[in-house]
């Protein structure tokens, strides 16, 4: 870049002044490379952790800075007993790791993890010195040995290898649906949506509201993730899902991963 710009030697190439053919070629190659990685991403599914670590998080917003180990949180331990709604709606846990302002003082005063009926020191161990290591252990696979408790639940191919939806609909699990804010029994939104896929040859995705409303509140998805305008959700593509937007906020993190094509695109072979 330090060489003075050469006069354009080949007028047929119509290069902008200052851009030598070599640089143009290099830049073109770079663009192609970028394109290639983007196209490759379509099939580059996120790495699959072992089933007993799927949905496990290490929360470290302030822990390490405060010289304690990050918190290990396992979704599969909690989702057996509580619906997503309880924590992500009533208790206002954000959907992204390390963005919720969970503090020791908050937990001790009955907020977040320490909410009454949860880790309040009565129902389950609380935020006290004797129990630090129960959460602050920095071990993503903490309590792996308890994973066998899920062995009787219906099987799935990916994620925790548990079909959580079936487990619920067969009554094998009956997670608590609320702590204080009871879901409105009159909201009976059951619409099943058919989403044409972006590519020809890929069968449409089918979205049933019911299995989602068993677990979630309307406002968990609307209007932030999906506005409710018909056919106007912008940039709702498979790529966006894979980037952790739209369906990808939950699917591939906690809910069944997108490697399980068939569960949304039922007519696919995989």
């Amino acid at each position: 870049m330090s060489t003075p710009s050469q006069p354009n030697q080949n007028p047929a190439m119509h290069l902008p002044p200052g851009l030598s053919p070599f640089k143009a070629l290099f830049f073109g190659a770079l663009l192609c490379l970028l394109q290639a990685t983007q196209a490759g991403d379509f099939w580059d599914l996120p790495p699959a952790p072992p089933p007993d670590e799927y949905g496990n998080l290490l929360i470290d917003r302030t822990s390490s800075k405060s010289a304690v180990k990050p918190v290990a949180f396992s979704h599969w331990i909690h989702r057996r007993k509580f619906t997503c709604r309880v924590c992500h709606y009533e208790l206002e846990f954000n959907m992204k790791q390390n963005t919720t302002e969970i503090t020791e003082a908050g937990n001790r005063s009955g907020k977040f993890c320490g909410t009454s009926g949860c880790h309040d020191g009565k129902v389950v161990f609380g935020h006290d010195t004797a129990n630090c290591e129960q959460c602050h252990n920095g071990n993503r696979g903490y309590q792996k040995e308890r994973f066998s408790e899920l062995s009787k639940l219906p099987k799935a191919r990916f994620g925790n290898q548990v079909d959580w939806g079936k487990a619920l609909s067969r009554g094998l699990l009956s997670p608590v649906k609320y702590l204080a804010l009871k879901p409105d029994p009159n909201v009976s939104f059951k619409a099943i949506l058919l989403l044409e896929s972006e590519w020809t040859g890929i069968p449409p995705a089918v979205f049933p509201h019911r299995p989602h409303t068993w677990q979630l509140d309307c406002s968990n998805c609307h209007p932030d993730l999906f506005n409710i305008k018909k056919k106007t959700t912008q940039h709702f593509s498979m790529q966006a899902n894979l980037n952790g937007e739209f369906c990808g906020v939950c699917h591939s993190h906690v809910a069944f991963p997108m490697a399980d094509c068939k569960r949304c695109h039922p007519e696919m072979d995989n």
Binding site: L34, E92, N94, M95, K96, T99, D224, L225, F226, T233, Q234, H235, F236, A240, N241, N243, E245, F246, G248, V249
Partner: peptide
């Protein structure tokens, strides 16, 4: 420009932080 395109694509489908 490349970054801006990427960002503009990322504006939907994300949960707002309350």
């Amino acid at each position: 420009l490349l970054l801006a395109t990427g960002l503009s694509l990322a504006q939907n489908g994300v949960k707002k932080i309350r």
